[in-house]
Amino acid sequence: MTTQRIATLRLQAVGLHDRLSAWHWSEYLFWVLVAASYFLFPSRHLLMNEIAILALFSLSLDLILGYAGVISLGHAAFFGLGAYTAGIITKFGVTDPLIGLGCATLAATALGLATSFLALRGSDLTRLMVTLGVALVLYEIANRLGWLTGGADGLQGMDVGPILGFDFDIFGAVANAYSLIVLFVLFLIARRVVHSPFGWSLRAIRDNPLRAAAIGVPVRGRLVAVYTLGAAYAGVAGALLAQTTQFASLDVLAFHRSADVLLMVTIGGVGYLYGGLIGALVFKIMQDTLSNLTPQYWEFWIGLVLVVLVLGGRDWLERLAALVARRTRPGAGR
């Protein structure tokens, strides 16, 4: 009798647990649309490639901002390091893109781990300044090491080999496919991680670090781990940009990169993985459209949208989704 009851409760718990991490239909739809876009807009591969890369970059920031609550204003440090690593390595004859991607990941991971101990100190303001400082330092190092990085001229003459037998073409079709697949794979990994006990404890730390420690979660260790993971993801994004554009310049380490990615995650909403992806898409399309309309002043509109968005509530997507759900299912709410 009692064992029967426990067995029922157990089933309930497992069912609930599975529902918490189950794929929602809108997630399937999202990725079907992503795949469809590849075939629907063959003339926009270059733009879509850039969006995929920025989406991955935003995802990496969402991991540390949305899941561990660590705010960074220097995330470009890892993006840039990844880009330069992937670029420089081709100068030494390693032209295989996947090996380049691996090396860039390692470099960004190492930098993430090393700087996590600095970036996790103190308050939000301290963190902002430290992350900003790390990115500035890296920028000037790249600037100074002209013999290696090309300095202000950028890294010229990158020679990236074919990816699994496919040569990168000038329309960006191969590049776009490559970036999208890497984005999708890394997204799947991130999604798994956030639904693991490790991922739950990250959300716990963001919600209430005091209580997280009081149930035995080693807060610092977890933050170091997720900061490093975020750095690794950013490094991959940077490497993709360098490989698919066959170019890396100081721009990949510039402050606007860090600021833009923070903007994208804010636009899309933090802490549910899709925020970075949607934010990158909205940001890039807005940038593309607005800069055609007003080439000089497009940032005015971006700024305006940002202010309205932050003041009007950053959960606009959630509310929009709820509205759509109500409209499409009349009577469901009664």
């Binding site: 718990a13 497992v14 647990h17 599975d18 991490s21 798994r192 991680v193 639904h195 693991s196 006990p197 490790f198 991922g199 739950w200 404890s201 035995g216 979660v217 080693p218």
Partner: peptide, 11 residues
């Protein structure tokens, strides 16, 4: 002792 488990779910 599963706090660092990052690949498999809690359940």
């Amino acid at each position: 002792g599963k706090g660092w488990e990052f690949w498999r779910s809690v359940g």
